[in-house]
């Protein structure tokens, strides 16, 4: 096995030059809970591991009611759910950060790593989509911001170019009447991969739904943003029938596969059940916010 370089840049610029130098022979390291397992499994032939955890922008975690939330790409889950203001303002993100792995994994795993790993089953991605999150990316050609639903392009693949690094994830400040939820189905209580999951959000105004978003995990080659399911609720009351109709649209949109974790039929059924339940909880949470 060849030897690899371990490099600890302290600025984004330095990281970008390193990525330009090593190209596809380098990966950025955040918590390593995916990358170290994959390196051991021989997925990459790397010349360099670039540790992102010593770059200030990748470690930032800032929240204000006016400007919303910025999560540095390497911030571990425990910091996110350990901050009470963030946990209460971003309930869907909070749900996913508390159920990724166990305590040991949460001590290291970042939402940035979850997004860049681009697993169809990634628990944070539907929650980020539900919360309208945007990925802030830097490369040799400058900075760009991309909605999270446009990041994953296939299992383990993203729309980032070689040489680009995810610096942070921005999430708008929720306004009054906002609620969100992420739930998944797994065969045990914790430490497992989602058979299916649903991340949803609703914005209530004067008793009606002003905006809603629905995204699913583990039922397509990428986490799936089901725009029409959320849109079907706009202008309507959050009644059982309307929520059921949106859940049916989520079920229709899912294109799962059959594997050891579940069949196509079971997974589609889960999409309906999980979307419905998640929407009900999101509505309850939105009302509590009032």
């Amino acid at each position: 096995m060849n030897s690899i370089d371990y490099i600890r840049p302290t600025t984004v610029d330095e990281a970008v030059s390193l990525l330009a130098k090593y190209k596809e022979k380098a990966r950025v390291l955040a918590g390593g809970t995916d990358l170290i397992v994959q390196m051991r499994g021989g997925r990459y032939q790397l010349d360099a591991v670039i540790d992102g955890k010593h770059i200030e922008e990748l470690n930032q975690l800032t929240y204000s009611k006016e400007n919303g939330l910025v999560i540095g790409a390497a911030v571990p889950c425990h910091k996110i759910y350990g901050d009470e203001n963030i946990a209460s303002a971003y309930p869907g993100i909070m749900d996913s950060a508390t159920l990724i792995g166990g305590i040991q994994i949460q001590g290291r795993a970042s939402l940035g790593g979850n997004l860049m790993n681009a697993a169809p089953s990634a628990d944070a991605i539907p929650a980020l989509i539900a919360h309208n999150a945007v990925a802030n990316i830097v490369g040799a050609n400058g900075t760009r911001s991309v909605p999270v639903e446009d990041i994953c392009s296939g299992p383990g693949r993203t729309t980032l170019d070689t040489g680009e690094i995810l610096v942070s994830i921005s999430v708008p400040a929720p306004s009054k009447g906002f609620g969100a939820r992420y739930i998944r189905f797994i065969p045990r209580n914790e430490m497992d991969i989602a058979v299916a999951g649903a991340g949803v959000s609703v914005q209530l105004k004067n008793g009606k739904i002003e905006a809603a978003r629905v995204a699913l995990s583990s039922v397509a080659p990428t986490p799936l943003f089901v725009e029409n399911a959320g849109n079907s609720l706009v202008g309507k009351e959050p009644s059982d029938e309307n929520i059921q109709a949106a859940a049916n649209l989520a079920k229709e949109a899912a294109t799962p596969i059959t594997d050891m974790r579940g069949t196509v039929e079971f997974r589609k059924h889960l999409c309906e059940v999980l979307t419905r339940r998640a929407l009900h909880t999101a509505v309850e949470r939105a009302r509590e916010e009032n």
Partner: peptide
């Protein structure tokens, strides 16, 4: 325990 948090040492690089 690494810097006050428990972690799986099989998922940390020694150089970290």
């Amino acid at each position: 325990n690494m810097d006050g948090r428990i972690v799986d040492s099989c998922l940390v690089l020694g150089v970290e």
